[in-house]
Design a binder for these strands. Sequence first.
DNA 1: CTTCAATTTTAGATTTGTCTAAAATTAATT
DNA 2: AATTAATTTTAGACAAATCTAAAATTGAAG
Lengths: 226, 226
Amino acid sequence: MKYSVSKENHLKAIFHLQQEQGLVTTNALAAALRTRPASVTDMLKKLKEQKLLIYERYKGFKLNTEGRKAAVQVIRKHRLWEYFLVKKLQFGWDEVHDIAEELEHISSRALIDRLDAFLGHPETDPHGDPIPDSQGRLQVRRQTCLADLPLNKTVQVSGVASQTPEMMEVLQHNHIRLGTRLEIKKKFPFDDSLEIKVRNRPPVTLSARVAKNVLVTYDESLTERR
Amino acid sequence: MKYSVSKENHLKAIFHLQQEQGLVTTNALAAALRTRPASVTDMLKKLKEQKLLIYERYKGFKLNTEGRKAAVQVIRKHRLWEYFLVKKLQFGWDEVHDIAEELEHISSRALIDRLDAFLGHPETDPHGDPIPDSQGRLQVRRQTCLADLPLNKTVQVSGVASQTPEMMEVLQHNHIRLGTRLEIKKKFPFDDSLEIKVRNRPPVTLSARVAKNVLVTYDESLTERR
DNA sequence: CTTCAATTTTAGATTTGTCTAAAATTAATT
DNA sequence: AATTAATTTTAGACAAATCTAAAATTGAAG
């Protein structure tokens, strides 16, 4: 099944929103897509017609199985293209989002499967977000922000929530990149800042603001792999 | 300047048509784009408004400098993507057109320049058509069809005009591929068929129909390069 | 349990790209 | 040169995706 660019964007945004909240609201989706609530309502009607979501007037909405499948395919494409842009075309971590936003709507299934193979079936995109496999299975990983973590637990940086250039600057400066392993050595309740330790580096302090935006994974594979 | 997908398709098609004929006609463009003459007229008005072509009612039209620039950029993208698909993703020569047709509308300039570098600044696409450089310069090559060639002139296969699967089958079978060097050994006026010779192979006969569709280059670089 | 504010939906308009059917223009033929 | 045929353009309609402004619904607070 092929959907318009706008529909794919709606599906993707709904998918992301319903990860956090269960039901998604019209206003929230309008904000995420930088469009108007009225436009969202229009689109919801069409998506409901096409049986891609569960929606009751005034109540909120969420994707059904079909809609989730479609959304995950778009996300798969987005993340594979991001990986390609960074690993093959040498783009910076922070430059690729807008381009991938366009590439994710290229429809060919054969293209994306071959791209996946060409890239060596990567598991996560350059921001550390998991890439759904060709069956649409999306790996679930225990992901929290650095701020919510106990002391002395080794974790791996897997993403950055709000990627402003200013934010990226801080991370760059402290040698924190995707995949960096680190642990929290001390918490300062005064301002909720943290002292963290990266292997082979002196400890550094991060503000609560920064810690909230750094996402980390701490699943078992960490002790196993690499 | 950024143009809609439909506008880019019109510009590209006009460019190709005006290579052959000087002025392009409404019907010809409608046929090339598989749309209706009335729709073409509508679009021509918009493209004229935007100062991309020279157009007088009922008379015909062609691109001006600005329009040509825009068209060449689309062609550059199309051919670079085709090269990528064949050389990196292992697609067949004949499978890539439709996918490139979508990819050519991705807008990022940085993307296409990096892709070009990643591919090693290729000079021709997998069909043998020259790829415009980043300045939009399009290499002019003396290209004719096999049918119009004198005897005993060594030429290089550079493209296929009408790429039907049936046509490709004939070429495959006779070991004629892009870059293949060959010469005409004999012409049969009875049916305009040709006997040709590829190095290290027995001579084969091609019908006039096939010969008309095989494009070859015969510039000096042939004796020089490789 | 009303009333008011926020949210959501409807109604109606706009833009872009397309279409069909009819009219205008050009070209071709007798 | 006049009539017919082909080409091209206009006129008017439609679908998709958006918007604004107004109406409907919900839910929160007195």
